[in-house]
């Protein structure tokens, strides 16, 4: 057998193994997606949106409390986190640039993006929940804001960086002050990118469970007072899925389906925005 024949055989072996691993990997992942859709669609009814939680065994139980709680907690985190993140990202790209301080902030943010989120929950418990004496929707929002900040900051930084410097220089040459150049020229040029960053940031925190376990905690009934413990889809999923009651488990799957579809939609939208920008 010549050396080249050996190489070809080796090549075929490795390529087959690689294809098999791709099939195995995709198989597992589609399995998960499949059961998510089957169980989710099966459990999806109108009462899920119209009814609050109820003790196991009650017919009229839904996820209204968790959906509204989720909206409030993630919404508040977005309202606070997005402008802060964009401003901080603006500093990095437009003022700090390659300075040591800016580089340090970038490095720390990159690390924070992969840091364990449950630790953020512990931190917020110590500085918000413990002093207040009780869990609250606000505490959950604060935890999510902390997780969202570095994501928005780094995407904004990167996206502003893609705006050609000639564009800035042209605006400066017309005598515009820096903040106007940034707001009117740079932001406009990076609009699609910043929007993608926001969508991905929201998608990321919307799926967080661990940091909410001991901040917003849970509530089986509808509550819109963010000073009180509050239900979220993720914590509700966790509690219902680990309960021994079949109807609760079913609600858990419905929550998993709704949440996953929401997050996937945000991700797809984000990718489309970026594609559209590249196409131009």
């Amino acid at each position: 057998m010549t050396h080249t024949t050996k190489r070809i055989i080796m090549n075929n072996i490795v390529m087959t193994l690689s294809t098999i691993s791709a099939v195995i990997g995709m198989g597992f992942l589609f399995w998960i997606l499949g059961i998510l859709v089957i169980n989710g669609v099966d459990a999806l009814t109108w009462t899920i949106f119209s009814q609050e939680g109820a003790p196991p065994g009650y017919e009229n139980s839904g996820l209204k409390h968790a959906l509204i709680g989720q909206l409030l907690i993630v919404g508040a985190a977005t309202v606070v986190g997005v402008p802060l993140g964009i401003l901080a990202g603006t500093y990095l790209s437009e003022y700090g640039q390659k300075a040591k301080l800016a580089e340090t902030i970038r490095d720390i943010s990159d690390i924070m993006m992969s840091a364990p989120s449950i630790v953020i929950g512990a931190f917020v418990y110590a500085v918000v929940v413990a002093p207040m004496g009780h869990f609250s929707g606000w505490a959950g929002s604060i935890a999510l804001t902390i997780i969202m900040l570095p994501i928005i900051l780094r995407t904004t930084d990167d996206m502003l960086n893609l705006v050609p410097s000639t564009l800035r220089e042209a605006a400066f040459a017309l005598g515009a002050p820096k903040y106007k150049v940034i707001i009117q020229v740079v932001y406009r040029g990076a609009k699609a990118g910043i929007l993608t960053g926001i969508l991905l940031g929201v998608a990321r925190v919307a799926g967080e469970t661990a940091p909410l376990l001991f901040t917003s905690f849970n509530d089986n009934f509808l509550n819109t007072d963010m000073n009180e413990p509050m239900a979220s889809l993720t914590v509700t999923m966790y509690n219902y899925a680990t309960s021994p009651y079949e109807d609760w488990q079913k609600l858990g799957w419905a929550a998993a389906f709704i949440l996953s579809m929401f997050i996937l939609t945000l991700n797809i939208l984000g990718k489309l925005f970026l594609l559209k920008k590249k196409g131009r």
């Binding site: 998960i32 997606l33 799926g207 999923m237 858990g252 998993a256 797809i268």
Partner: peptide, 13 residues
Amino acid sequence: LLAAIPSVVYGMW
């Protein structure tokens, strides 16, 4: 996209 699915779903599965 599968990397974006919340880990709590993987846990339930």
